[in-house]
Amino acid sequence: MNQANFRRLLARNSYLFALLLLIVVVLINYSRQDNLFDPSVLNRNIRVFLPLAILAVGQAIVIIGGGIDLSVGAMVSLCNALLVTWITPETAGGDILLAIGLVALVGMAAGLLNGIAVAYLRLQPIVTTYATSFIFAGLALTILPRPGGQLPSDMTGLYRRLIEVEAFANIPIIQDISILREIPPAFIVIAIILLLWAFLRQTRLVQYIYASGDNAEAAYTTGIPVQRIRLGTYVISGFFAAMAALALTMSLGSGSPTSGDAMTLDSIVAVVLGGTRLRGGQGGIAGAMMGVVILGVIRNIISFYDVPTWSQTLVDALIILIALAGPGFVRYVSDLIRRYRLQGGRAA
């Protein structure tokens, strides 16, 4: 009975396992780095995680809608190249905002291309977005042939400050409540995204995304505009890729035509670690964000445990593999126990 309840609990809360995992890795990290929860350390960590976290939100939405986007990394590279080309240390404030707006549009246009190919030309998502990633990577390389560019120090400073306590410390309410003063604003950014999602989750639009991913045929039969919804998920992913590129560019302060390439597969692993199944129709962005933090904390642990350089890749991959195997292992073992009990019951 307890067993059944536990299984139901796991099935219903797909990111329960991710949460457990998150707690475990954070505790391991904390055991070696006792200032982990200092606001400044938390800040620094979240600042590093933020670009991938934003990217994973877009990836999660595409995956929930029944697709996958292998071009997100190339989109980040493209937007990163555009940002450092359009924004120089001399650029005026208004023009910076214009450039950011344009980059967001470029990201959405790139997503639109993916979306049209997948939803309307009915091409298979994996190969389609793999093909378009060549287009985006080529464009990034055309725009910015070699690493370079420089962002105004105001902008990089803003990214640091925004994500440090002082920026918010002067706001009256935060000043009055001491606990709020201790909360790094990066968490507030993430909290805003999560709250927004919790609100959107109730809307028909997002319900449609889940329905399209769960069973496209059935969704179509009940009148859901599956093709438009799919198109939409890729455009959203393009937008989030542009925002991830903005965060990445602000934290690096410069650009590279391959800056985002490694983020594609990380974003997918993060989504899966967060309890979203690749088949679509289930999961959420909270899980994806937890997945990103888990990935980041694993890398923290590796550096704090002084893992030798040559072993880091192996340790990293093994921990990820174990984390991925976790939910399946629990299910497999509980299946075995149930079968054993059933047999025992029949014998008695």
Partner: peptide, 29 residues
């Protein structure tokens, strides 16, 4: 051609290739 142009052309050609017959079934009522 420069590497960047090669990459773009490869992407476009791949898209064209998979759209010839890599298409999935249309939705039907």
């Amino acid at each position: 051609l420069p590497e960047a142009t090669q990459s773009i052309i490869l992407g476009v050609v791949l898209l064209v290739l998979i759209s010839i017959y890599g298409r999935q079934r249309a939705f039907r009522l």
